[in-house]
C-alpha cells in the first residue's frame, strides 16, 4: 500500500509537469507587455527620414510589425502585410513595420524586389525593439486607439489572426 502511495506521489507531479510543459502552444509566448500601455517611440521613416512617434499615432488603432529582410518568415509574411495595407488603407487603421537588426539598403532592395508594404521605420540602436521586448522576428503588436497593447503575435501573421485581432481593435473591413 505504501509503495503505491510513493509511486503515485512521484508519478502525479511528473505527469503534471509534462502536461503543462508539452501541452502549451510554443507560438503563444507570453508577453509581459500585453494589456499594458505601449512604450513610446521616436523613429525615422526609411522613405523620407521624417520622425514618427507613438504619441503622434495615438487615437487610432495601430499594428506594429518588427521584421528583417534576412528573416524567412518575414518575407513570407510580406504578402499578407501588403494585402492588409491595401484592404485597410482607407480605414482608421495605422500600420508600420520596424526594421530589426538590418540595414536601410537591404530594406530598399527588398521593397524594389517584392513591392512596398507598410511604411518602414528604422531602429538603428534597437532601442524600440528592446522597449517592446522583441526577441526575434517577425513579431507583431496590435495596439488599440488608447495606446494599450491588446495582443502580440510571435512568429508569422496569418489571415485568421489578423482578422481576429482587427475585430478586437474594432476595425472592420471596408
Amino acid at each position: 500500500m505504501k509503495k503505491w502511495l510513493v509511486f503515485l506521489l512521484i508519478l502525479i507531479p511528473t505527469v503534471g509537469l509534462f502536461y503543462f510543459g508539452l501541452g502549451r502552444d510554443p507560438r503563444l509566448l507570453p508577453s509581459a507587455l500585453v494589456a499594458k500601455q505601449a512604450p513610446d517611440f521616436t523613429l525615422k521613416k526609411l522613405e523620407d527620414g521624417t520622425e514618427v512617434t507613438l504619441r503622434g499615432l495615438s487615437g487610432k488603432p495601430l499594428v506594429l510589425n518588427f521584421w528583417a529582410t534576412w528573416c524567412g518568415p518575414c518575407a513570407a509574411e510580406h504578402q499578407i502585410i501588403r494585402e492588409l495595407v491595401k484592404e485597410y488603407g482607407k480605414t482608421n487603421l495605422q500600420f508600420y513595420s520596424v526594421l530589426y537588426e538590418d540595414t536601410p539598403e537591404n530594406a530598399r532592395d527588398f521593397i524594389r524586389r517584392y513591392g512596398a508594404g507598410a511604411p518602414i521605420l528604422l531602429d538603428p540602436g534597437l532601442h524600440t525593439s528592446i522597449d517592446y521586448g522583441v526577441s526575434g522576428v517577425p513579431e507583431t503588436f496590435f495596439i488599440n486607439a488608447s495606446g494599450k497593447i491588446v495582443y502580440k503575435q510571435a512568429g508569422m501573421l496569418t489571415p485568421d489572426v489578423v482578422q481576429e485581432q482587427l475585430q478586437a481593435l474594432g476595425v472592420t473591413s471596408p
Binding site: 509581459a32 499594458k36 528592446i130 522597449d131 517592446y132 521586448g133
Partner: peptide
C-alpha cells in the same frame, strides 16, 4: 533594481 525592473517589464521575469 530599476535597471533589472526595466528588462523584467519588457521580457517578463
Amino acid at each position: 533594481d530599476e535597471i533589472l525592473f526595466y528588462f523584467e517589464q519588457r521580457y517578463g521575469e
